[in-house]
């Protein structure tokens, strides 16, 4: 068969390539921050003139969002180590043990046979999205272990440790259930996160749809709708709490490697960073840990956060072997 024939019905029609180039330029502009009113007006007018432009812009934003996963490569990423031919073949991957580049990639990705080991895990500092064979997907936050056990009548996933987002393909005949300790979360076509806290609490945030939360063995469940959360603690009754759309987004910032610290104390922020790396943020006195912080930081940059916090709160930062101690400044 011959290559696609190019017949222009309208010779003046703007080429798809030109549209694409302009769309990438707009996406790069939008990446700087919210567009100015003037830019937004120009973009809207540009898109309104041809539906292909709106499509090209949506595609550019989609590709940009897709590339956010590069964050998971971590600050230690060195292009030189990946400079070999980007053509991938399965054979090459399997030959990983022999080739240096492939081997390092295998190590970086933690490629394991998913269904053979029945266990999906992320090391500290990593975020990974994995598609499940029936169309659902699970995104693991740092230091997380899940164990899927898919049977005909039930899709069961045990959250052994950590936090994960579940995007569930709707299938009423085959319920999707997450077990975290003694808490059972059943999805009814939905997207939600489950986090096991250090103290044993299990926190559920529902992004879309509906889930049923109950203790294993209990006949009574609590229904959580979209934009609600519940923190199941000890034997206390399970209570839903409504979240603002911003709060839902904030709770999922980790997917892009971000940590939204708004409203947290320094000690709480330090505990969040400790989930992602072994860099230690300590406080000379408990008072310091109670100071409030705000802002969005990279999960990979606890040091940057500590420095910024010290600067904005007027604290002194004393270096530790693998971390920092924050103290109130001694007046001289």
């Amino acid at each position: 068969m011959s290559p696609p024939t190019k017949i222009h019905l309208n010779a003046d029609r703007e080429s798809a390539a030109d549209i694409e180039a302009a769309a990438f330029a707009w996406a790069a502009r939008a990446d700087r921050g919210p567009l100015s009113a003037e830019d937004q007006g120009a973009l809207d007018a540009w898109m309104a003139a041809d539906s292909r432009r709106a499509g090209a812009y949506a595609r550019a934003l989609a590709a940009d969002a897709y590339l956010d996963r590069a964050r998971a490569l971590g600050p230690g990423y060195q292009p030189a180590r990946h400079a070999a031919s980007p053509v991938w073949t399965r054979r090459r991957l399997l030959a990983g043990a022999g080739g240096g580049v492939a081997a390092s990639l295998v190590a970086a990705l933690g490629v394991t046979t998913l269904w053979a080991r029945d266990r999906i895990a992320t090391p500290k500092g990593d975020v990974r999205r994995v598609s499940l064979p029936e169309g659902s997907a699970v995104t693991l936050n740092t230091d997380t272990v899940v164990r899927p056990a898919f049977a005909k009548a039930e899709r069961r996933i045990d959250l052994v440790r950590g936090e994960a987002l579940f995007d569930v393909a709707h299938n009423p005949a085959r319920p999707f259930r997450v077990f975290a300790d003694d808490v059972r979360i059943e999805a009814i076509g939905t997207s939600f996160t489950v986090r096991r806290h250090e103290n044993g609490d299990v926190e559920v945030v529902v992004r879309q749809g509906l889930v049923d939360v109950r203790r294993v063995g209990s006949a009574e469940g609590v229904r959580l709708a979209a934009a609600t959360t519940s923190r199941v603690s000890g034997r206390a009754p399970i209570r839903p709490q409504v979240l603002s759309p911003e709060a839902v987004d904030k709770s999922l910032a980790w997917r892009e490697g971000r940590l939204d610290l708004t409203g947290l104390t320094l000690a709480e922020a330090a505990a969040e960073f400790a989930r992602y790396s072994d860099y230690q943020i300590a406080f000379a006195t408990a008072d310091v840990g109670r100071l409030e912080v705000s802002g969005v930081y990279s999960v990979n940059d606890p040091e940057g956060f500590a420095k910024a916090a010290a600067l904005s709160l007027g604290l002194e930062a004393r270096a530790l072997p693998a971390g920092v101690t924050l103290a109130t400044r001694t007046t001289s």
Partner: peptide
């Protein structure tokens, strides 16, 4: 989606790593 698709998704990050280098 088949198990191979799932495997491919796990390799996405590796592809991105290789492409950024180019």
């Amino acid at each position: 989606p088949s198990p191979e698709t799932a495997a491919a998704n796990r390799q996405e990050l590796g592809r991105v790593a290789a492409l950024v280098a180019t």
